[in-house]
Amino acid sequence: MKKLILLFVLFFGMQAVQSQELKWHTNVKEAISIGNKEHKPLMMFFTGSDWCGWCIRLQKEVLLTPEFAKWASDNVILVELDYPRRTPQAPEVKKQNDELQQAFGIQGFPTIYFANGTDADGKVNFEGLGNTGYVAGGPVAWLAVANQILKKK
């Protein structure tokens, strides 16, 4: 019985550690620079973190899983573009996120865009690879969709 409890604690502890290892960037120019150095596209997560039920569900079912953590660290640079209603946000982050919402034509949350970015002379440009949102079926189903998008790069 003690071994079973110990295994249970270790399993969930490892999941929490793996999920915490992911770095979600909030500065898109910084993320573009890292993506270009590592030759990885951006995964831009447009979310309403403190009010959007589907965004919260996507986080719990996919983005906080060990499967996603492994996949993300191997394949993409993570960018969180948040549109909170109750959580304060720095003015420069709010301005950047609003501009990106307009540029990508985001009308609903969650929306995830995969793109390669360039930052030349202070101008940011994106080459869109594709987009998705919530996909039922947990990490396996969501990652299958994401992998199809990334095959186009």
Results as ranks from 00 to 15, higher is better:
Ala90Val: 02
Glu21Asn: 14
Thr132Cys: 06
Asp98Lys: 11
Gln89Asp: 08
Leu129Asn: 01
Met43Ala: 02
Cys52Asn: 02
Asn125Cys: 00
Ile149Thr: 06
Ala103Thr: 04
Gly137Ala: 07
Lys2Trp: 02
Trp142Ala: 05
Lys3Cys: 04
Lys70Phe: 05
Thr47Cys: 08
Glu67Pro: 13
Asp119Trp: 09
Ile5Val: 08
Val79Lys: 07
Glu21Asp: 09
His39Thr: 10
Gln89Leu: 12
Asn147Lys: 14
Ser73Glu: 11
Ala136Met: 05
Asn36Asp: 08
Glu61Ser: 08
Lys37Asp: 03
Leu42Ser: 00
Phe8Ala: 11
Ala90Lys: 15
Ala144Ser: 15
Cys55Lys: 09
Leu22Pro: 10
Met14Val: 06
Gly35Pro: 00
Gly108Leu: 13
Ser19His: 08
Gln102Asp: 11
Pro110Val: 03
Arg85Gly: 00
His25Asn: 05
Lys153Trp: 05
Val124Gln: 10
Glu67Ala: 15
Asn27Lys: 07
Ala141Gln: 09
Arg85Tyr: 00
Pro66Leu: 10
Glu80Val: 10
Trp71Phe: 15
Ala141Asp: 05
Lys123Glu: 04
Glu21Lys: 14
Ile56Thr: 09
Ala90Tyr: 07
Gln101Thr: 08
Leu4Ala: 07
Ala103Glu: 14
Ile56His: 09
Arg86Met: 01
Ile77Pro: 01
Pro66Asn: 12
